[in-house]
Amino acid sequence: MRKTDHFRLLKGEIYTRSKQDVDITCLTGSLWITQPGTGQDIVLSPGESYWAEKGKGKLVVQALCDASLQVSGCRAHGENYQVRTVISSRPGTA
């Protein structure tokens, strides 16, 4: 079954996904994406997309500023994702 989810992330919040074969589209803001096994970091602006392949490791998406994203793909049994807030430990960056 093809599934599309929409998320809003505040600056610094992280979206992770354990299983891939999904298309990540930046709707607003700016997103940083990393995925083990790809050897690259990606920054998406509004309207840009990234295809996250299965078998490449855990997908991590972080909002570089307040952002919204669309995640489209097949929902597999046991699939999970998580959105969490990261609090900077650097002085003056809370």
Rank of each mutant, 00 (worst) to 15 (best):
T85D: 08
D5W: 03
F7N: 02
S88A: 12
L64W: 04
I42G: 01
L31S: 08
T25L: 15
G92S: 10
G47K: 14
W51I: 05
S49E: 11
V60I: 14
R2I: 12
N80Y: 07
D66V: 08
G55A: 08
L27V: 15
Q40L: 07
E13A: 10
Y15F: 15
Y81M: 10
R84S: 13
S49D: 10
Q20I: 00
C65V: 15
G37C: 01
Y50T: 01
D21F: 00
A63T: 05
I24G: 00
D41H: 06
C65R: 15
G29P: 05
G47A: 11
G92H: 08
A94E: 14
Y15H: 12
E48C: 06
S88N: 10
V83W: 02
I24L: 14
P46F: 15
I24Q: 01
R8Y: 10
E79F: 00
E13C: 10
Q82N: 13
S45L: 13
Q70D: 08
V83A: 02
V43M: 12
T93I: 02
T85L: 07
V43K: 10
A63C: 09
Q20P: 00
G12H: 07
K11P: 04
V61I: 13
R75L: 09
V71N: 07
G57M: 03
S72K: 06
A94S: 12
A63M: 09
Y15L: 13
T4F: 00
G29L: 11
A94Q: 13
D66E: 14
G55T: 03
W51H: 09
T16W: 03
R84A: 12
H77I: 12
P46R: 15
S72M: 12
M1W: 11
G29Y: 07
T4Q: 11
S72H: 04
G55K: 00
H77V: 07
Q70M: 14
E48K: 06
G73I: 01
R90M: 13
D41F: 06
R8S: 14
P46S: 15
E13K: 06
Y81N: 07
H77A: 06
Y81K: 03
G92Y: 10
L31W: 02
A67N: 09
L44Y: 05
G39Y: 01
I33K: 03
S88K: 04
A67C: 14
G37D: 03
S68F: 04
T93L: 08
T16D: 04
T4A: 09
A76N: 04
Q70I: 06
K54V: 04
D5C: 04
P46M: 15
I42A: 05
P46Y: 15
V71K: 04
C26M: 11
T4W: 00
P36W: 12
K19M: 13
C26I: 05
N80A: 09
A52I: 01
T38R: 01
T85F: 06
L44K: 01
R8E: 14
Q70T: 10
Q20S: 09
K56G: 05
M1Q: 12
E13T: 06
G39V: 02
V83S: 00
E13F: 09
S49M: 13
I87V: 08
D5F: 04
V60F: 08
K54T: 04
Y81Q: 09
G29R: 11
R84W: 13
Q70F: 03
S49R: 14
D66K: 05
Q20T: 02
L59Y: 01
L69I: 05
S18D: 12
